[in-house]
Amino acid sequence: MGTSLQTVQALAPGQNLNAYITAVNSFSVLTAEEEKQLAEDLYYRENLEAARRLVMAHLRFVVHIAKSYAGYGLSQADLVQEGNVGLMKAVKRFNPEKGVRLVSFAVHWIKAEIHEFILRNWRIVKIATTKAQRKLFFNLRGQKKKLSWLTNNEAKAIAEDLNVEVKHVHEMEGRLSAFDTAFDAGADDDDDTAFQAPANYLEDKRFDPSTLLEDADWSENSVTGLELALEELDDRSRDILQQRWLSEEKATLHDLAAKYGVSAERIRQLEKNAMKKMRAHMEA
């Protein structure tokens, strides 16, 4: 392998993707025996040169995977770069004693990094945060390439296949069909299109007099209710809550335990009971 690591860095995907792909395709593919020897050198002897050769030999595989995510409107170079991060993580964790080729082990790590990058950058507003939503995002988007709006039967079939609820399939379909828009009108928008910007029709109710009055009334009632609830407590319980929650320098359980000559656990119990009494009084 004559190409150095510095050469690959100079041919980073972001600078010249075609040159980068040409370079990584020129690296020799490792035989099973070569790969096992390098993996053992890394795993048992922490040989960094072995790690470099393992990474370099599999860069072409990352490019191949990254191409399958070309439909998300993101830079192919960025996808490759993220996939390379996954490859390096896989090489670091690869155990040659498991009896599998590195490529089979690395595919999970490569796709995981690319998935994270897509979810962070595909939309301004995140559309998939839970594990189930992420599964739906990638599987449903692949199916939507060949489907129009899903019928109830199609949505049910997808839900059963992915082990999620049908309503979540419809919800994700709506998110995928939506699009981001700027809040203000663009500099090039004319009078016929500028009015469509959300800034021209979304109402800011923060300074509405009725809303301000309602908030002030709620705040006043809350403070009054809190004061009345505190008056219902015995002196010790009231002092514990004031010291723990209403003072600028809040006391610890141990501080109050020393003050009243009891255990910290007893102070915690008194605090819990006092909070329960106050909540009941304020909800009455």
Rank of each mutant, 00 (worst) to 15 (best):
R206E: 14
T252A: 09
Q242V: 06
A32I: 06
Q9A: 12
H254E: 10
R120C: 11
L213V: 14
K277P: 04
A106E: 03
D217H: 15
N47Q: 03
A39I: 02
I65T: 11
K135F: 01
G261C: 09
D41G: 10
F207I: 06
V8M: 14
P198R: 10
K131L: 11
D191P: 02
L246G: 09
R268Y: 08
S28Q: 12
N163G: 12
L213G: 12
F61G: 04
K259L: 08
G142C: 07
S28G: 13
K259R: 10
R268I: 02
L256T: 03
G142R: 13
T31V: 05
D239T: 03
D78V: 05
Y72Q: 03
A185V: 01
N139T: 09
H281D: 06
N153Q: 09
K205M: 15
T252N: 08
N84E: 14
I127A: 04
W109T: 04
L17P: 07
V107D: 13
K250L: 09
I158V: 15
A12I: 06
N163P: 00
K111N: 11
L233E: 00
K135N: 08
G83A: 02
A216R: 15
I127N: 01
L30C: 01
V55Y: 02
Q76C: 04
T31P: 05
G225M: 02
Q15D: 08
A106N: 08
W122S: 06
L228V: 00
V80W: 00
N153G: 03
L30V: 00
N273A: 12
S4P: 11
L79A: 02
E165C: 07
T22D: 13
E171W: 03
